[in-house]
Amino acid sequence: MSSLWEYANPRKFMATSGALLPWVSGLAVLCLVGGLFWGFFLTPDDFRQGSTVKIIYLHVPAAIMAINVWLMMLVASLIWLIRRHHVSALAAKAAAPVGAVFTAIALFTGAVWGQPMWGTWWEWDPRLTSFLILFLFYLGYIAMWEAVENPDAAADLTTVLCLVGSVFAVISRYALLFWNQGLHQGASLSMDAEQNVADVFWYPLVTCIAGFFLLFLALVLYRTRTEIRARRLRALLAQERTA
């Protein structure tokens, strides 16, 4: 069995990700289309929330992935910081826009869902507000990557930003709990809860979560490949200029 670190070699990563990509994206499309179709057409309305319950198939997966993408970026940044594998830094860069879009989807679907249920588009509820702050963190992180010319310096600076941002994201989360009691319900999918959402909603929801996850995986592989190519292009052009 070979070591995981072999994939830190860009050539090896390109070969493996190229072989994986069609499968992952195929599965992602299958799960997303299947899950959303199942949720949209084949599930009953909730007796209290009516048809708005269908928004859950977008809202919950996007929200789960919005947080996990940041975690993945944190891990990738740490790997870059400790082991200096370029692919890792580029993967973190590639993931950030995906995370930002997922966060935006979670916020938007939440607003559209909140309007009929709570009677307001936006409520300064701790959960909503912490997602808004998470969105700002994503924007800052992306802007930092764009602003620095030297790619290694950009990778290092965004790593520091990601570490500090993660700490502050957690602090903000608890500060917001202190600040305001919310309208948002508690976790509806925890493993230890006795009462989760009913099975009819549960299976399509899990399919959608898998779909969002696979979509994220496919996009990160794909975008990391682009970043590796862009890095190589940059190096070649720099060589030509000095030659």
Binding site: S51, K54, I55, L58, H59, A62, V101, F108, T109
Partner: peptide, 13 residues
Amino acid sequence: EVLTAYGVSIVAL
């Protein structure tokens, strides 16, 4: 509401 949520999300993705 439901159609907007689906429409915008799918467009964003």
